[in-house]
Nucleic acid binder design. Structure first.
Lengths: 212, 212
DNA sequence: GTCTATATTTCGATAGAC
DNA sequence: GTCTATCGAAATATAGAC
């Protein structure tokens, strides 16, 4: 039996992901990945097509984990309150965003890569499911008419806050944690259905929200 | 007279900035900059220390222009309304953010670089002046007590919106322009002084807001 | 100050033996 | 499947003549 397998695609992806977070995107080099899994560089090319392919696989892995985490957060919150109201939807959004933020703190490099302007193609399909959940919840808070701009407002705020946080852009002191909660509550209030209008409460099925 | 100057630091920075926007950060190579100003690569090193130095100079140039544009926008709005009220401060903020967004649309690569997590050091000092203006205006709208978290909420939303816009992340159709105005008005309302509290109107002098 | 020429470095990717 | 050996492609930066 010549040359048994000494590594696997999963091990390569895991090592690559760890190196990505430890050293940054540009510092992810094939040589180090090979060292990490205990083989020589050329052996990697039996499992991944090239470096771009490896990055794509890493981001798919990250995205799957993020989706699972946010879904779990929403399910856990829903169990605590069995009503489906604007109030519970707001609670779901708080929980979802908190998990989202926590994930970004744990995976700052991957988060930045996922939300960067030249986002790597291919890792986007799976993100649509999580986005659908978000749009559904926002529709319950903001009403179906304003659901899309309201979701964009909330997601823009959250992404912007987290990005600035990771960039170390909050340099004036103050309590960043408090600023997150301040923003969360104010934005949630801001996107609520305007009180003067009386539309029938209607739960719209939401298409995929790539926006998130 | 041997070898008269054929280029200048300003020309190199201008060419570099143009190439940066046209081709992206990574594609900014010294060879192309040299071609653009009509000299050979080694001649660049008489004016700039290295590539990082050139990028730093480019971002300083961009920051100066952005600061001038936002300052001008606020001054123009103040001329139209000579009162200094929460109402006029809100108008100033709308104008400031509109100019900020327009600048990002015109200089997407530089904007991304300025707001990216691994922000290039050195181009930050000059940004503090513009931030001071923003914090002053937000204090007039939100009240001095909540000025800092309110400013962080507004800036996070704007940065997040613009970043997603530039990334092409708004893929569900709808009117992105309307979403900007929706978010702007809702966030402005959200950060307003909460009505139940009656604090004396007091204009706090604002320290530099690197946050923006 | 500008040039030609080249050193240096780094890294992705492949060929072919085992 | 893994290895040794090596190619090839950038790009930065410098040396030294003019």
């Amino acid at each position: 039996m010549p040359a048994p397998a000494q590594t696997s695609t999963a091990a390569i992806v895991a090592a690559g992901r760890r190196l990505l977070e430890e050293r940054g995107t540009d510092a992810l080099i094939m040589r180090d990945v090979a060292d990490a899994v205990g083989v020589r560089t050329p052996s990697l090319y039996k499992r991944v097509r090239n470096r771009s392919d490896l990055v794509r696989l890493i981001l798919e892995d990250v995205t799957d984990e993020l989706t699972a985490a946010t879904d779990a957060a929403v399910r856990a919150t829903d169990e605590a309150t069995d009503e489906t109201t604007a109030h519970s939807a707001a609670a779901d959004l708080r929980a979802l965003m908190a998990v989202y933020r926590g994930f970004a703190h744990t995976n700052p490099v991957a988060y930045t890569l996922l939300t960067s302007p030249q986002a790597v193609a291919g890792a986007t399909e799976r993100a649509e499911r999580a986005s659908a959940t978000l749009l559904r919840l926002v529709a319950q808070v903001a009403g179906p008419h304003d659901a899309l701009p309201a979701a964009r407002t909330l997601v823009a705020w959250a992404n912007g806050f987290i990005t600035m946080e990771l960039a170390g852009a909050f340099q004036l002191g103050g309590d960043v944690e408090q600023a997150w909660h301040f923003g969360m509550e104010r934005v949630l209030t801001a996107i609520q259905r305007e009180p003067r209008r009386h539309r029938p409460r209607q739960e719209n099925a939401a298409p995929g929200l790539k926006d998130a």
